[in-house]
Design a protein around this nucleic acid. Structure first.
Lengths: 224, 224
DNA sequence: TCACAAGCTAAAGAAATGCTAAACTTTACT
DNA sequence: AGTAAAGTTTAGCATTTCTTTAGCTTGTGA
């Protein structure tokens, strides 16, 4: 369950948003002023902050800066129509997105999702259309999920950790097995072959390349 | 100093990014359209490209594909919130990462670092337009990749390690074979010839020179 | 200008390297 | 214990790369 901190002085808007967000499955925490918002933030760090600019006690930019100084949490700013030209300074104050009032709740919802997705994606790397989510242990190609065995996933993770670099069989062995294998073992080759065939099956051919005499690398696609 | 090519039609965003990136120590080159971006790229290949999707003249995916067709440079795409579903096709067009607008500059900065780290093999040497990446076992000439055999790559690596120095056949043998070969073997000559022909094929003639009676050296280009 | 050494080239056989399929072993789960 | 999935080994095959050979070209000094 995602927690959202709403800093908004107008009770009417606050109430409306609380309803909308609650229905969408978010837990909403409401603060009516800049100071109380900052206090609330310290008590329980939310997953996202919605900040109204027109606060009575503190300037919105100031609040954004203070939040940003101590927390990584994404901030969406609500601003009146006449303050549009402030958007640039706002963004550099630490806001991640802004919405001009009045706005449609659905749009706010969409932007919230975008921001949350941004943060979650932390451990994601991609090469070409290949996305590797380390935390989720998931690999996507063209939005489609690939079913990889543990060894295959580790192998791909290693290669994607330094795109372009050629990993020798020895390096791969050290990373996946923690030691060197027998001199004449070709386990690595076999796992490479299996991984490659699953990649190809999904249409992701040409990324996993053999560098003869040295090892393997993940590179930008090459004609097959 | 890393060079970033920014392809962005909105002058306001371009200016903001130019400031931010400049402060972070990058050299920023700004192109306001897809065509001019491609031209700029050809003039001086940057270390990274930031590409806005909403260009007036060319489709963003098209630009990405054209860049990718000729260069290995990493591409980060900026896309409007309503085009999120295009990310998949974008990634397979050759983009390495994408960011949904608006975004926090710090996040862009982080992603730039990720991309540059991925690409850097650490050790890289270059003479003229010839770049040799040891970790990637890759040789680029004018952004274009050369396919070299192991011996050819080692040979070029050796020569490029002390640009200008003349290496005797004996020295070359010691480095590539770990010993001296028979007196009347001309393996070195043959590998030199093969390397030279691959270089020439890519347009990189005039670098690999013969010093009669002594050996071979890699020097600044000379008329052919 | 000629002769000879040094270097270049092309081609063929030898060697090394990687790929694949299939059998076998281990592991995790029922 | 039985099954299914994953991991490993083996061995033969295909391909690339390396080396050698032999004849050709080029540069240099008499």
């Amino acid at each position: 369950m995602k927690r959202i901190l709403l800093i908004e002085d107008d009770p009417e808007i606050a109430h409306l948003l609380q309803l909308e967000l609650g229905e969408a499955g978010y837990t909403v925490d409401w603060a009516s002023g800049g100071m109380s918002g900052l206090v609330r933030l310290r008590e329980a760090v939310p997953d996202l902050v919605i900040l109204d600019l027109g606060l009575p006690d503190l300037d919105g930019g100031e609040v954004a800066r203070r939040i940003r100084a101590g927390y990584e949490v994404p901030i969406i700013v609500l601003t009146a129509a006449d303050a549009v030209e402030r958007k640039v300074s706002l963004l550099s104050d630490g806001a991640d997105d802004y919405m001009v009032k009045p706005f449609h709740p659905a749009e706010l919802m969409a932007r919230i999702q975008v921001q949350l997705r941004h943060r979650e994606g932390g451990e994601q790397v991609s090469v070409g259309g290949l996305e590797v989510h380390l935390a989720k242990r998931q690999v996507l190609y063209g939005g489609q999920e690939l079913r990889l065995s543990p060894k295959e996933f580790e192998l791909l993770s290693l290669l994607v950790s330094r795109t372009g670099k050629v990993f020798s069989r020895q390096e791969i062995e050290e990373h996946l097995w923690g030691r060197q294998l027998e001199r004449d073992s070709n386990v690595v080759d076999v796992h490479i072959a299996n991984l490659r065939s699953k990649l190809r099956e999904a249409g992701a051919y040409g990324y996993l390349r053999t560098v003869r005499g040295v090892g393997y690398a993940l590179r930008q696609r090459e004609a097959e």
